[in-house]
């Protein structure tokens, strides 16, 4: 439930603008900044194929979880 999240410590994965992570760390917020880059070297065709594989893996994992 969302209301159960209220009051908990926020811990952040930051993807993109590095200064957002700097600000959070300065406030003592546990943060991990990702040296993010476009997936598959920016190649959209390969990215789409990787997404299909990831979706398939998710489905398999969900089915396993449901058993």
């Amino acid at each position: 439930m969302l209301k159960d999240f209220f009051g908990k410590k926020v811990k952040v994965i930051n993807l993109g603008i590095a200064s957002f992570a700097d600000d959070l760390r300065q406030q003592g917020v546990e943060t991990i900044h990702t040296d993010w880059r476009p997936p598959a070297g920016g190649n959209k065709k390969i990215q789409a194929l990787l997404d299909k594989v990831a979706n398939w893996q998710n489905k398999v994992q969900n089915k396993k979880g449901a058993r």
Partner: peptide
């Protein structure tokens, strides 16, 4: 590395 992370802040393209 931070499995207990509960928020993802996204500012990628």
């Amino acid at each position: 590395r931070l499995p207990e992370a509960n928020m993802v802040l996204i500012s990628v393209p």
